[in-house]
């Protein structure tokens, strides 16, 4: 066995002698790193800004345009906007949490932290996401009677039906996102197994 591995060792040593040019200087890399970090922060700020604008828009619509005054409509508005707020805050927190994983720790330690992170994500994808989607949908349908004051019966029916289509599309993308993340979780678990006790073999 050692001859073959000695050959491999020689090949490795030989490959090490190859000159590889630095494509970027250390300063360029620092600048690139700072640029990437700024971009990540702006994405989070952007998400919060979009949420705020959406909330202001929805609130303005219900205060100045469609003045729903009954309790059911108010609950509906609260459920819809509340669901949106919770969802976006969860995403922002997730980005923050994953960025805090220190890659300078041992591979096993880092993998355990990723495992915790993806387990947290799987909990989010379960009852929390379903709950948010349900709250959003209930909120929307609570507003339907209010729409009847502004639109014809046909238009209200179309609005009610079009939500089903939107919910189906939204649901499809959520499901796809969940599947992708569960695949990542499986991959982290597999690595955890690889790092686990080898003595049992």
């Amino acid at each position: 066995m050692s001859d073959i591995l000695d050959d491999l060792q020689n090949m490795w040593d030989d490959a090490k002698k190859d000159k590889n040019e630095h494509s970027l200087s250390a300063k360029d890399l620092i600048a690139l790193s700072k640029q990437k970090m700024r971009k990540a922060v702006w994405m989070q700020v952007g998400a919060i800004a979009i949420l705020t604008i959406t909330l202001l828009g929805i609130s303005a619509f219900f205060i100045y345009v469609a003045q729903f005054r009954n309790l059911l409509s108010h609950i509906g508005i609260f459920l819809m906007t509340g669901g949106l707020v919770v969802r976006i805050l969860i995403e922002v927190y997730s980005i923050y949490r994953s960025s805090k994983i220190d890659l300078g720790l041992t591979a096993s330690n880092v993998n355990k932290r990723y495992l915790n992170f993806f387990e947290y994500r799987s909990r989010i994808h379960g009852p929390v996401t379903v709950g948010i989607l349900a709250a959003y949908s209930v909120g929307f349908y609570l507003l339907i009677p209010g729409f009847a004051n502004y639109f014809s019966t046909v238009e209200v029916t179309l609005i009610a039906l079009s939500y089903l289509l939107a919910a189906a599309i939204f649901g499809y993308f959520i499901r796809k996102g969940i599947r992708d993340e569960m695949e990542l979780l499986r991959s982290v678990l597999q690595l955890q197994d690889e790092m686990a006790d080898e003595k049992s073999f």
Partner: peptide, 27 residues
């Protein structure tokens, strides 16, 4: 072991298996 975070004992077993696998691949 300090890089990967698994014990030296487990590492020895693992490396032995990897070398066996590599030998097979190269042969």
């Amino acid at each position: 072991s300090e890089v990967v975070g698994i014990s030296e004992g487990n590492l020895r077993v693992k490396i032995h298996r990897i070398k066996k696998r590599l030998k097979k691949i190269l042969e």
